[in-house]
Design a binder for these strands. Structure first.
Lengths: 332, 332
DNA sequence: CTGTTAGCGCATTCAC
DNA sequence: GTGAATGCGCTAACAG
């Protein structure tokens, strides 16, 4: 391995001069600079980032830690990456994985040290686990769970999105709108917030909200959704609208309806949440809530940049506005 | 920050004993061991992974480098992660991004140093760029592009999958099977290999393959697929089967057909490639090729483990078998 | 089984 | 504008 001192010897300068040429912290006069650059080129030298990290304390790396790689954070991650790169850093993804052990490991001081800052998706983490994160390292939380006040946090306007979705169907004639994946009771967490928006829409429209139409899910998978909704339909539950708390849930719901020959949107209107790409290509297209990933990415990076710059402003809790995207699964 | 020497002092032992307790390289007698563990607990010590890396040369980290986070590699990544963890390492994802600059940076010696091994998805990289990767670090290439012989490589049985897909439609009566996203000419690269399989199926079935039915795409997006196929249909091209080179392309094709009221599978049969989850929930379900991600993950990690263990076996080029998954978009 | 020595490659600090 | 010394925190190699 060719090191900085090899380059220094080749160029006839000290290591410090090489270092300065590389990171530009101090001015180096052009002729010296050129000699160094020539030597670097000739020897094929590249800095050892690990040594730089140990010495300087900076890693120039930001981590986005997600529950799993396949989930919807991939889309957000692609929007976060260029913003992080603008700040001269790179983004890496880690996953917490399924086991509590690996989850805790992802959040250990040792691992957090590897990064200048961490964006942590809280989808898979309970509050207790978050409370136990002991570090003053820059962290911004992302996601729809309730989080400790002391963290910066970016989440969606869950309740507002659910209200928009439900009001849209009520305004188009639905009177029995099922909220698929909605949690009864409570007022925090994605499922509860979205159920609350469903209630608000009913109240505003003067339509009674039947609590029998709040149908919880455990995995929020399309598979579970299809099974659970199918069971209800087969049991004769009367439904003329479905607010699925995610597009994935909506996908399962559409399959359950199609399995039974129930027409969308004529018999039952359907609205999802997330604006997955697939929704555009279904027939009919899926009406949904656009979660505004660009704005999520911008907010998250803005908050993290502030922390990484050493800002000690009070924690900020950003709620990103969302909007309704109307397609064919609801009536004109 | 509490360091190893703090722990050593607290426990009344040398740093080496602390180090040995932590990494288990040498036996430490239980009473000593307990004193060390108690001191670690008391002080809340955690190793500095950067220092360990600089000293030992190991990072205990494997990187999976992909063109973008949102694409289909998320699914493979989730299967690779546990296998990497079994080997006592963690997996991180990086993306090459769009710009050639960041792509080259991802492959720089400096960055590759950060990892014990690298799994590199070649989807976004041309051969020239790969040739220029100068390092003897453990690397395994993943994906359907042609790659230099000197690398280990895992790819799908593209041609066989395409043959299965096309033969399935020909056997069920299609005589004008369009290959959407197939590249004319050549015999390397995903699109060409899949077109070759389409040709093979025709030859085996004794059906002439009309080269006018080879329709190239540039982005392989659902959007492009919908537009391109729509244009052909509107121009009156006669088609009674579509082999879409990816499920995403199939999604766009299904939308183009639905836009025009063309029935699937009665008027046109459709087969995709990738077995994306969404295919199960469409109506009708999408017949497709299961790319066997489990086997891709296993092969990739096996090859990488061998390189990381210092094996100097000749480069291995694994072709992972695929299978046809029959759903409603083709006839019974 | 445990300790001592040395140094991984770089950037901070202080000198000139 | 450039150089010399020092040490970030850890572990390999060698003693004992």
């Amino acid at each position: 391995m060719v090191t900085m001192s090899d380059v220094a010897r080749e160029a006839g300068v000290s290591m410090m001069t090489v270092s300065n040429v590389l990171n530009g912290h101090r001015r180096v006069v052009p002729p010296t600079r050129d000699r160094v650059l020539t030597a670097i080129e000739k020897l094929g030298y590249e800095v050892n980032l690990t040594a730089r990290h140990l010495r300087s304390g900076r890693t120039d790396t930001v981590a986005l830690i997600v529950p799993g790689f396949h989930d919807y954070y991939g889309d957000v991650a692609d929007r976060i990456a260029p913003l992080v790169e603008e700040g001269g850093r790179r983004l890496v993804l880690e996953r917490t994985g399924a086991s509590p052990r690996s989850e805790i490991e992802s959040l250990s001081v040792a691992r957090l040290q590897m990064y200048d800052g961490v964006l942590l998706s809280v989808a898979g983490l309970d509050r207790e686990r978050l409370e136990s994160v002991r570090t003053k390292a820059p962290i911004v939380l992302l996601g729809e769970r309730e989080v400790p006040q002391r963290f910066d946090h970016v989440q969606l306007a869950n309740e507002e999105g659910a209200r928009l979705a439900t009001a849209h169907m009520l305004a188009r004639g639905s009177r029995r709108v099922l909220v698929l994946g909605g949690a009864p009771g409570e007022t925090s967490g994605m499922a509860s917030l979205r159920r609350a928006g469903w209630e608000t829409a009913h109240r505003e429209a003067g339509v009674p909200a039947d609590s029998a139409l709040v149908v919880p899910l455990t995995t929020y998978s399309a598979h579970e959704s299809r099974e659970v909704l199918g069971g209800l339909l087969d049991a004769g539950v009367h439904v003329d609208g479905i607010f699925a708390v995610t597009d994935t849930v909506a996908l399962g719901a559409l399959a359950a309806l199609a399995d039974r020959g129930i027409g969308v949107p004529d018999d039952v209107q359907v609205v999802g949440f997330d604006d997955l790409d697939v929704g555009k290509y279904l027939s009919p297209g899926l009406t949904t809530i656009d979660p505004n990933h660009d704005e999520v990415a911008r907010s998250a990076v803005r908050l993290l940049d502030r922390r990484m710059a050493g800002g000690d402003d009070p924690p900020e809790h950003v709620v990103v506005p969302v909007r309704l995207v109307v397609r064919g699964s609801t009536r004109a």
